[in-house]
Computed example of a mutant assay.
Amino acid sequence: MPKNKGKGGKNRKRGKNEADDEKRELVFKEDGQDYAQVTRMLGNGRLEAKCSDGVLRLCHICGKLHKKVWIAAGDIVLVGLRDYQDGKADVIHKYMPDEARLLKAYGELSDSFRPNEGGGNDDDDDGNRVDSYFGFEEVDIDKV
């Protein structure tokens, strides 16, 4: 039998990134970059995000972040726009919730971004908030 030379499996590798508690410098967007909110995860290192310019883009998580930084629906990310494909972008950086609140306080994020909420858009065409449940009428069971 081969001798084990490693120090553990994938769970040990997952636990290595414990430097999240320390403060890090806030990253602002530059030319060719934009802020986006994740609407849904697609799998295979891809996600769908609504950018601050209102365009829904298919985004690819870069290798630096893939399997190291966990991204969920509703997170605020910095994406690098592609010159040759307007409908696609690359995720460069994920903002923590407190960093997203700071960006909103600085006026970098528009009011359409809600940093603490999930990715689903519960607004109707007029921009009014709609409850995401079905309403049913009460019917007398004897008549059915």
Rank of each mutant, 00 (worst) to 15 (best):
Asp111Phe: 10
Ser110Tyr: 01
Val130His: 12
Gly118Asp: 09
Asp142Tyr: 12
Asp122Tyr: 14
Tyr106Met: 14
Phe136Gln: 11
Gly63Phe: 05
Ser132Asp: 15
Asp98Arg: 05
Gly63Val: 11
Gly54Lys: 07
Phe136Lys: 10
Asp125Phe: 08
Met96Cys: 11
Arg114Val: 14
Arg129Trp: 10
Tyr95Gly: 07
His93Val: 10
Gly127Ser: 06
Tyr35Ser: 04
Asp98Val: 09
Gly32Lys: 08
Ile71Leu: 10
Tyr133Pro: 00
Val79Gly: 04
Phe134Glu: 13
Gly118Ser: 13
Asp111Ile: 07
Asp126Val: 00
Arg57Lys: 12
Gly135Gln: 14
Glu48Leu: 14
Tyr84Ile: 11
Val130Pro: 08
Leu56Ala: 09
Tyr133Met: 08
Gly63Met: 06
Gln85Arg: 14
Ile92Lys: 03
Asp123Asn: 13
Asp75Ile: 08
Glu108Ile: 01
Gly120Thr: 10
Gly107Asp: 04
Gly135Glu: 11
Lys67Met: 10
Asp75Met: 04
Lys68Val: 06
Glu117His: 11
Lys94Arg: 15
Phe134Ala: 13
Asp124Trp: 03
Ser52Asp: 14
Val55Ser: 10
Asp124Lys: 13
Val130Asp: 08
Ser110Leu: 06
Leu109Pro: 01
Glu108Pro: 02
Arg82Thr: 11
Leu109Glu: 00
Leu78Asp: 02
Val139Trp: 05
Asn121Val: 06
Asp53Cys: 07
Val38Thr: 07
Ile76Cys: 05
Ser110Trp: 02
Asp75Lys: 02
Arg129Gln: 11
Tyr35Met: 12
Leu81Glu: 12
Leu47Tyr: 01
Gly43Asp: 01
Gly74Asn: 13
Arg46Ser: 11
Ser110Cys: 03
Asp90Tyr: 05
Thr39Asn: 14
Glu108Thr: 11
Arg114Gly: 01
Gly87Met: 14
Ser132His: 15
Arg82Gly: 11
Glu137Val: 06
Ser132Arg: 08
Met96Thr: 15
Gly107Ala: 06
Arg46Trp: 12
Ser52Val: 08
Asp131Asn: 10
Gly107His: 08
Trp70Arg: 13
Arg40Cys: 10
Gly119Trp: 03
Leu102Phe: 03
Lys68Pro: 02
Ser112Ala: 12
Asp142Ser: 09
His93Tyr: 12
Lys88Gly: 01
Asp124Cys: 02
